[in-house]
Design a protein around this nucleic acid. Structure first.
Lengths: 243, 243
DNA sequence: TCCTATAGTTAGGTATACCTAATTTGGAAG
DNA sequence: CTTCCAAATTAGGTATACCTAACTATAGGA
């Protein structure tokens, strides 16, 4: 006479943070909802590639639970609760540690880091997180130049992307810059960016060409000059150096 | 006027192999449904901790798809199709490679391998699989002594657990044995098994004690004698050595 | 052979996380 | 102060993967 421990599986999914919830929290964090400002349903829907109605639904659930992950008021947008912020930063930490690990230990090509990390970040255990962090010597920066949140769920000092960094695409006039960070989202750009020797911390000289739409760019290492498209320049953040 | 690439997420889940499907395939493989013999709905339900009705439902879907993963006939049980067998072995390969990787590269304690691998096996990419396999030197055996299926989706020569291996619990009389493999499922047993020095490939002498219910066991390395409970002896497979 | 117990199936329902379409709201512009 | 529009919400529906309860089929014992 089996008792039948059925509906275990169901329960597991019901309680814990799902992949989907993680992605909502990350999106809110990304859009600025970790501070005072509230994030708009439309913006969230856009970032998540989901209908606005779905966002409203999900937020109502997240806000209405016993330990809410977000603060949400009808028609007034959302922001993260402190629990929500903690979880969001944990997932970001996972993402960036995994990227660093794949790059340094498993020799992944840079343009494949994001996709793999995006999947795995939701499923690794506390132990896995700690072991790879230890193996890597507790890094503070990932291969794209982004800060890795601490184990305690906070952004470390000297956060990257730095507040004062700007998009390479928004640079006005010529000058010398330090490369702050590179967006990890567009695999295609990453290929050409790496090919130019553009890497976080490197120096870079810009001379805007009148003729082409792009950027003439010289990195420290090679003294070659590369032409970057406007497209690609939107994936690179830089900090201007004093002359 | 946004076109809205909504229902992408939905579609992604709909097509691909889900975690759940993987687990059904693995269970059928484990229960012997890779060969001629058919597996019973009840056995599957038991192994998956799911109601028999749920199994019937799932199998109908798996059998009815354009590229069926199982062969299923009402009231006559189920077995894997060749595509299903390939996928099942791929997942097992993932599982065992991940365990080996966690053990050798990330220094996981042996009793925590299974749980982490069980989660991650569904989500790693082809590339991840290949990179860790390469890093480990394309191992053929995992830390529990189980064969790792090949990249082509086949069990290698000299399969482990070996056909002729038996449970330590089923050993009749005294003798000397080679340890074939150890079940990875019970974390608690694994602790005490490792503490005895029981490890795949090691030699082991058994003397059954009349008094206790357990086994008196001496491994090659230490000349200490350990008492193993009947419980734990059911997690160890051995092959008898000629005297 | 028949008949019942057990295995398997069907029917109907839950929760998640999406969708579209219809409706409501709130703030900016006249 | 009203109007109107974009943003947000509600209502109702889909698919997945589970469940329970009720029904059916099959195989083995009398």
């Amino acid at each position: 006479m089996e008792t039948g421990d059925h509906n275990m599986a169901a329960r597991r999914r019901t309680n814990g943070n799902t992949e989907s919830v993680d992605n909502y929290l990350k999106a809110i964090l990304y859009l600025g909802g970790a501070e005072e400002s509230r994030v708009t349903i439309k913006a969230l829907a856009g970032r998540l590639s989901v209908a606005p109605a779905s966002v409203t639904n999900m937020l109502q659930k997240l806000a209405g639970s016993p330990a809410p992950l977000v603060e949400y008021e009808r028609h007034r947008g959302v922001r993260l609760s402190s629990a929500g912020k903690r979880r969001a930063l944990e997932v970001v930490r996972h993402h960036r540690l995994i990227e660093t690990f794949l790059y340094q230990v498993l020799d992944y090509p840079i343009e494949e880091l994001h996709e793999e990390a995006e999947r795995l970040e939701h499923f690794i255990s506390e132990r896995f997180e700690q072991r790879i962090a230890a193996k890597l010597g507790n890094p503070r920066i990932d291969p794209h130049g982004h800060s890795i949140p601490t184990m305690e769920g906070e952004m470390p000092e000297g956060e990257r992307p730095a507040r004062e960094s700007i998009l390479l695409a928004d640079v006005v006039g010529d000058g010398t810059f330090v490369i702050d960070s590179i967006s990890d989202r567009d695999a295609h750009s990453l290929r050409s960016i790496e090919a130019c020797g553009i890497t976080p911390g490197a120096r870079l000289r810009v001379r805007k060409s009148a003729s082409s739409e792009g950027y003439s760019v010289r990195t420290g290492r090679s003294s070659k000059v590369f032409d970057l498209s406007r497209e690609v320049a939107r994936d690179v953040r830089v900090v201007r150096l004093p002359k």
